[in-house]
Simulated assay, not measured.
Amino acid sequence: MEEISNFVKKNPAISMYVLASILGVGMLSPIIAGVVPKDSIVLLIAAYSASLTGVILTMIASGKAGLRKMFDRLRIWRVGIGWWAFALFALVPMYLGGMVLGNLFIGSSLDLSHVPPLYMFIPLFIMKFLVDAGFGEELGWRGFLLPRIQARHNALVSSIIVGIVWGLWHLPFFIIDLDFPPYYELGQAYGVIPSLIGYIIFFMIPWTILYTWVYNNTKGSLLLAFVFHSSQAWFGLFLDTDNLIGPYLGYTVIITIIAIVVVWVYGAKNLSRNNERIIIQDA
């Protein structure tokens, strides 16, 4: 057990990727084999593989005390109204702008005729927060991995590493149709490997830079990471599900530009002008 603990401490990124992939692909295998349907609870469990991995690896690396500290960061909420506003609503104009830019790529347009009534927004966000995005992934990417990578590298390099690992974790969604658009559609249209590489470079890494920026400027608040991830729920309300690739391509342009501006303004070392990056060094 000590050998495993030492390996996890020395190789957090490899440990995170391998175990999260095993748990994720392992749960997806019955779906891939056609044994269980795509809409079964098995898919939901696979979606939780990142957070489950984060909990397991935290226990291995730093025991119950480390796990307690990780969950304590879910209670960090006094971070300023500006950060709350960004985490909740920033993706809405980004995605809307992506839909407009999508028209330049493949002729998609900004069509809001399918947007549901306003009362559906909050229930969908809560569902994403409690059931899917937040609890499903953030205990892994920001709870376990990011602060340990930041103990060795500056915030920008750490974001690149986490973004690569996070992106590779999505590989199965490019290969098989799991009703997680537009990954499968991109793989079919442009090839799995080119789509995955482009997705990591222009989507996951810029997006991870924004997560790191929020995380380091909110005292390492996992709560804000949960909220930011869950705000993807708004995206589903605006998207025309019959035309997904165009908006995603447009969105990658916008988020890449924003990430570059964040690095330029806040600096690569901490992605913050007032705070040191959040680190965890396992003994």
Rank of each mutant, 00 (worst) to 15 (best):
A50N: 03
S51V: 06
L74V: 04
L74D: 08
A61S: 15
F71S: 06
L74E: 01
I60T: 11
R75N: 13
G66W: 05
G80Q: 05
V55N: 01
R68N: 15
R78L: 06
W77F: 14
I56K: 03
K69N: 14
L74G: 08
A65E: 15
G63H: 09
S49Q: 03
A50T: 02
I56T: 10
T53I: 06
L52Q: 01
K69E: 15
G54M: 07
I56Y: 09
M59T: 08
K69P: 10
A61M: 04
V55P: 02
I60M: 10
L52K: 01
G80R: 05
D72N: 11
I60D: 08
T53W: 00
T58S: 04
L74P: 06
L67C: 04
W77T: 09
R75A: 14
S49A: 10
G66T: 03
D72E: 10
S62R: 14
V55E: 08
S49M: 02
D72H: 12
T53D: 00
S49R: 02
S51D: 04
L74A: 05
V55W: 02
A65W: 05
V79R: 03
L67H: 06
S62N: 12
V55I: 15
W77I: 12
I60R: 13
A50Q: 03
A65H: 11
A65P: 10
F71R: 07
L67M: 11
R68F: 10
A65Y: 09
V79L: 08
S62Q: 11
S51C: 04
G66K: 14
I76V: 15
I76Q: 00
G54Q: 02
R78I: 07
S49Y: 03
R73V: 08
K64E: 14
R75H: 12
V55C: 02
G63L: 01
R78K: 15
F71W: 08
I76K: 06
V55Y: 01
L57Q: 00
A50K: 01
K69V: 09
M70Y: 09
S49G: 03
I60Y: 10
R78S: 12
G80Y: 03
S62A: 14
F71T: 13
A61V: 05
V55T: 09
M59Y: 13
A65G: 15
R75W: 12
S49D: 02
L52V: 15
